[in-house]
Computed example of a mutant assay.
Amino acid sequence: MVWAKERKLGEICSEVIIDKSSDKTTMESIVEAQHSMKKVHEYVKTANVVILRLWSIVLARSPKHTETVIWMLTGLAVALAVVPFKYVLMGLTVCCFATNTRVAKAVSDPRGGRRWREWWESIPAVPVHTVDKGELRTG
């Protein structure tokens, strides 16, 4: 954002440009651009919710989740302190190769992902309150 601000990209890129050189009609190109903008908007909303949930964990607004994250990070720190880095690196490499095999994909348990998703969805996001410029409170 700082880079974009310094280079004044907001002033340079103030409109959406649609390429007419494709074999699509202008209407198809506009509709495709509109769908792309909706997708970007959804990604931004998802990123905002993720940031608000992580902030909720940091502020301990959800003590159960904060406690879980603290224990996970403590366990990770102890493991990284005890296990030499070369073994951690070798393990990560093996995991990357193993997760891309057909056997791992066939064996993967969809319930694990569902449990993770349920845990993540149960974290309350920090509430957001919007105010106008005149309503700002000092103190």
Results as ranks from 00 to 15, higher is better:
Met1Leu: 10
Met1Asp: 12
Trp3Ser: 12
Trp3Arg: 15
Ala4Glu: 15
Lys5Cys: 09
Lys5Ile: 11
Lys8Ala: 09
Leu9Met: 10
Leu9Cys: 06
Leu9Ile: 04
Glu11Gln: 12
Ile12Thr: 15
Ser14Pro: 09
Ile18Trp: 02
Asp19Ile: 02
Lys20Met: 08
Lys20Phe: 03
Ser22Glu: 05
Ser22Cys: 04
Lys24Met: 06
Thr25Gln: 00
Thr25His: 00
Glu28Met: 02
Glu28Ala: 03
Ser29Pro: 00
Val31Glu: 08
Glu32Thr: 01
Glu32Cys: 00
Glu32Met: 01
His35Asp: 13
Lys38Asp: 15
Lys38Asn: 12
Tyr43Gln: 04
Tyr43Asp: 07
Lys45Val: 03
Thr46Val: 02
Thr46Asn: 00
Val50Asn: 03
Arg53Val: 05
Trp55Thr: 06
Ser56Leu: 05
Ile57Glu: 03
Val58Lys: 07
Val58His: 05
Leu59Ala: 11
Leu59Lys: 14
Ala60Trp: 06
Pro63His: 02
Pro63Leu: 02
Thr68Asp: 04
Val69Asn: 01
Val69His: 03
Val69Cys: 02
Val69Ser: 01
Ile70Ala: 02
Trp71Lys: 12
Trp71Gln: 12
Leu73Phe: 03
Thr74Asn: 04
Val78Ser: 02
Leu80Ile: 07
Ala81Val: 04
Val82Phe: 08
Phe85Ile: 10
Tyr87Glu: 11
Val88Phe: 15
Val88Tyr: 10
Gly91Ile: 07
Val94Pro: 02
Val94Asp: 14
Cys96Gly: 14
Phe97Glu: 12
Ala98Asn: 11
Thr99Met: 09
Thr99Val: 09
Asn100Leu: 11
Asn100Tyr: 08
Asn100Gln: 15
Thr101Pro: 06
Thr101Asp: 05
Arg102Ser: 07
Arg102Pro: 02
Val103Glu: 07
Val103Asn: 02
Val103Leu: 15
Lys105Ala: 10
Lys105Thr: 06
Ser108Lys: 15
Ser108Ala: 15
Pro110Arg: 14
Gly112Met: 08
Gly112Cys: 05
Arg114Ala: 08
Arg115Met: 07
Trp116Gly: 03
Trp116Met: 12
Glu118Thr: 05
Trp119Leu: 11
Trp120Thr: 10
Ile123Arg: 10
Ile123Ala: 10
Ile123Glu: 11
Pro124Lys: 13
Val126Thr: 14
Val126Lys: 09
Val128Thr: 12
Val128Ser: 08
Thr130Asp: 05
Thr130Met: 12
Val131His: 09
Asp132Arg: 10
Lys133Ser: 10
Lys133Leu: 12
Lys133Thr: 09
Glu135Gly: 04
Leu136Asp: 04
Arg137Val: 08
Thr138Ile: 07
Thr138Gly: 05
Thr138Tyr: 09
